[in-house]
């Protein structure tokens, strides 16, 4: 079993990166890999409540993040500095996450086997 970290740094709408990252995360978890997610920079916008991607022709993969616990993906980290940069507070987020500082993210990237950036 590999420790796989999927890092989201791109905004949710506009590109398919976030959706690809989530698909990979769920698929890897289905194959019993130990998956963790990290949201940084514009990627933190994935976590905002009340998104309606279908309104602009996108698929609503944002709702799928709520299913992470069913896939046994329990480690979900968010960069504290990135949240602050975008003026987001914990209360605006749609799923339970662990807010961590830069050092904790560095340590996490070091501790896993692979990091894939989306």
């Amino acid at each position: 079993m590999k420790k796989l970290c999927i890092l989201f740094r791109s905004a949710p709408q506009g590109t398919v990166k976030g959706r690809e990252g989530l698909d990979l995360a769920l698929l890897s978890a289905s194959f019993e890999q130990e998956v963790s997610l990290v949201f940084v920079d514009e990627g933190v916008l994935h976590l905002l409540k009340d998104q309606q991607p279908e309104l602009i022709g996108g698929k609503d993969y944002i709702s799928t993040f709520k299913a992470l616990p069913l896939y046994d993906i329990e480690s979900v980290f968010v960069c504290k500095q990135s949240l602050a940069e975008y003026g987001l507070s914990h209360g605006l987020l749609s799923i339970p996450v662990t807010v961590v500082n830069d050092e904790a993210i560095s340590a996490h990237l070091k501790s896993v086997d692979e990091v894939l950036v989306f």
């Binding site: 289905s30 609503d60 944002i62 709702s63 799928t64 709520k66 299913a67 069913l70 896939y71």
Partner: peptide
């Protein structure tokens, strides 16, 4: 309708 994804078997069993 809630998660916008069809559950694979393992997830279906758990849910």
């Amino acid at each position: 309708l809630e998660y916008k994804t069809s559950p694979a078997i393992r997830v279906l069993v758990k849910a």
